[in-house]
Write a protein that binds this DNA or RNA. Structure first.
Lengths: 339, 339
DNA sequence: CTGAAAGCGCTAACAG
DNA sequence: CTGTTAGCGCTTTCAG
């Protein structure tokens, strides 16, 4: 065995032309079953591996969909990517995944890298981007889908929800249950734009309810870890001990806060109510279970994937930009006295 | 603006040859700084995007490293991928990630898909593969690294540890602290090969200690969720109430077991000791904190990434296969009466 | 340091 | 249903 066999080698050995071999490796092409089976068998014997790089260049179709997420290790984004991958896989498309680490500058760099691979569509998490990143995406002349947000200035398609509105659901739930002195635990707003949106939503909802929105505990850059959630709760209990309820930017932080209460013998929800965001697995299992918001990550991925598959297949109208709102839902549980 | 500009367009506009433009987009090529700056500026004005597909075909270097992991949403694998990505990124390589869903048949399919993209190296999680997958990887004539395991028949390089030996650390820790009736909570062994290795390691260690290794609670296919961990603990408390300690196949399941004890008023560690695997964030934050094994996922990713970067750069010896053992470590905490 | 010619492996477009 | 011709956009190779 010398160099890697190409279609030419398969063609020679199978006694057909290269073009026929090419057809044997595609699903739609018109070719007799007998010929296809024969060619495939010969290819297997030779250890032939189809060269997608050459195929992509000639056909000007990469089969890639570039996807950026803030973090790989986050159940919400992972669920979206899983659903998205499933939909795209069914359409013969492959996800090219990049992680921004909650950093717009890194997102810009990443998008530049990904676009070199000639993706057929681009899915980004969030609606905040650097100007250069916006320009690159617009110039790319491919469908762009922003997710997990409802951007003010959409680049193209949108599959998401308003993070601010989601927080209102939480504040409304807490005020309905009689909580007044409500605090917010979040990350450094300079980085996590979705987290900042949630904080703004919290503040706005508190103001509308005529409550003091100034109980804000900000920790380091996102994601806010369980440990940071615990530390934030410790700070809160030390400095604002009359706080009645806490909303955390996400469930892991909320769980951390819960553990701090457990360590200090602060009863949840009797002495302190706690709510999170994301409906992570832990929020349903912890004792007590955590009230949270379900943003339906799988639905987001399904919708985005379906949209892209339709557009690339030419099925979609593609008249302007699609806006698919996936409405988040309150999940009321014991940590706020519900359930 | 018509079609997407190519190097030819940039070359014409910059008054140089295509070759010079090509050089302007690489770091090593010999070209004057003035020319490079000029070309880059022209390219920016034109909105030129380097076409990696064409570059790959001609140079026969894709810049891809294919990586398979069982699940995206798992802190351990995510940490390995993050570290790996960091190392490879520094070497100008891009990760092409695929998820096997803990399924060897899916792994086989995925590897076939990934190899068509002409990756320069392949990193797989685990040392168990279908025969066809093994053959594909061997025929690919690229460096293969198996991780998170110490395979009996390595395909090439290995960066990992013995899952069985890791369980011995846990059993030794528990017996040292006086626990005798120790149970194991794990997933359906037909699927999760690493989980099955851990179960075997548990059984072997129990036998060596002269203890009964038959307290096994197997739940569904992996990953074992928190909820399944809780259900398994419930079953255990109902059917084998004299059990003194539990080892779970991974931390989430261990945490689920812990919550079931909390719901039932079973004291941990006084009435029941619990240990997990993976040193996930939750094991350090839960109340009580969970004893676990740290498999050093970041170290695995760093080592695998460094190895590949060295090999592809031609720095590595590449005489045969490298074996890098990353020894896992016991993290003793309150859930087994330690810490 | 810069340029001209050739071709990577495959498929679009057409012809039969 | 199968074959022929040309060429995707870049880089290797060689020459200046």
């Amino acid at each position: 065995m010398n160099a890697k066999p190409t279609m030419k080698d398969v063609a020679r050995r199978a006694g057909v032309s290269v073009m026929t071999v090419s057809r044997a490796f595609r699903s739609d092409a018109s070719i007799s079953d007998a010929t296809r089976d024969h060619i495939r068998k010969v290819a297997d014997e030779l250890g032939y591996v189809f060269d997608a790089v050459a195929s992509n260049l000639r056909s000007q179709r990469s089969g890639f969909v570039a996807v950026t997420i803030p973090s790989i290790n986050n159940a919400n984004f992972a669920d979206t990517v899983a659903a998205l991958t499933g939909r795209l896989d069914a359409a013969g498309l492959q996800v090219l995944l990049g992680r921004t680490n909650y950093d717009m500058a890194e997102e810009e760099r990443l998008i530049g890298q990904l676009l070199r691979r000639q993706p057929e569509a681009l899915v980004v998490t969030g609606g905040h981007h650097t100007d250069r990143a916006r320009r690159m995406m617009q110039n790319a002349a491919i469908p762009v889908v922003e997710t997990w947000d409802l951007p003010c200035r959409p680049l193209g398609h949108v599959v998401g929800f308003s993070n601010a509105v989601a927080m209102r659901l939480l504040v409304a739930h807490l005020t309905r249950r009689g909580y007044r002195r409500i605090a917010f635990i979040g990350g450094d707003s300079a980085y996590d734009t979705r987290g900042a949106d949630r904080r703004r939503g919290f503040v706005a909802a508190m103001e509308e309810a005529g409550l003091d929105p100034s109980r804000l505990v900000m920790v380091g850059p996102p994601p806010v870890s369980m440990r940071e959630g615990a530390a934030a709760m410790a700070r809160l209990l030390d400095t604002l001990p009359d706080t009645e309820a806490v909303v955390a930017v996400a469930d892991p932080a909320a769980f951390g806060a819960l553990t701090e209460c457990a360590r200090r013998g602060v009863g949840v929800p009797d002495d302190m109510a706690i709510a999170g965001f994301g409906n992570f697995e832990i929020s349903g299992v912890s004792v007590p279970a955590l009230t949270t918001i379900d943003p339906f990550p799988t639905r987001i991925g399904d919708q985005a994937g379906g949209l892209i598959a339709d557009i690339l297949r030419g099925t979609a109208t593609e008249n302007g930009a699609t806006l698919i709102e996936v409405a988040p839902q309150l999940v009321a549980r014991a940590s706020t006295g519900a359930g």
